[in-house]
Amino acid sequence: MSTLLEVSGVSVSFDGFKAINNLSFQIGNAEMRAIIGPNGAGKTTFMDIVTGKTRPNEGRVIWGEKSVSLLKMSEAQIARAGVGRKFQRPTVFEDQSVFDNLLMALKKQRGPLSVLLYRKSEEDTAKVQELAAEIGLVDQLPRKSGELSHGQKQWLEIGMLLAQDPRLLLVDEPAAGMTPEEREHTTSILVEAAKTRAVVVVEHDMEFVRRLNCKVTVLHEGSVLAEGSLDHVTSNQDVIDVYLGR
């Protein structure tokens, strides 16, 4: 299994506080990975680094077969390179319809001029319909996304991620605030996605992680504490001490 993303020896500090401390992490193509850890373990900062929002003080972030460094790229370039991100709080464009949200996310030329001259094709419309079906929002397409329920917004955001057709999906707490049925649906969307691409899920909810049924990385104080199957890490004494035991 070839490596898609390799993070090695990355450290970042805010005003002396080390949020990430010599972190190393790898993920291959078409792999599902869950990241767990207590608050302040550096989960969100890790995502910020990969997506280019935060620049690390030291370390390397290498991407893809051509082994390009992500550190020199802007957020938009990283996104175009194939890294998609879903935020903790659902962030969709509430003033625009579900259809427009998905259309905007659709993998296309992103330059201002080509977007200005873009004309919607039948094919694109079909693609949006298909995505909407996948996330279960076909009926909601013409509605303003601001009117959707919390769970629907989460799905819409995942749908927008999928529309980007990324090679790596970073998903921050996708199940927060969802009803059990909604969680079920979310799990299936993610598992489906992981068949063709790498998916990294940050989650607190152990039950949800268990259902994802994948390799788990435990972060603590900015570095990897343990890695392996869920059963493996939950039996790890360190993990029990710093995370589970409390």
Partner: peptide, 11 residues
């Protein structure tokens, strides 16, 4: 939401 647009890959 400027940041969101950026993470969609638009500069």
């Amino acid at each position: 939401d400027e940041a969101r647009v950026r993470f969609l890959g638009y500069s």
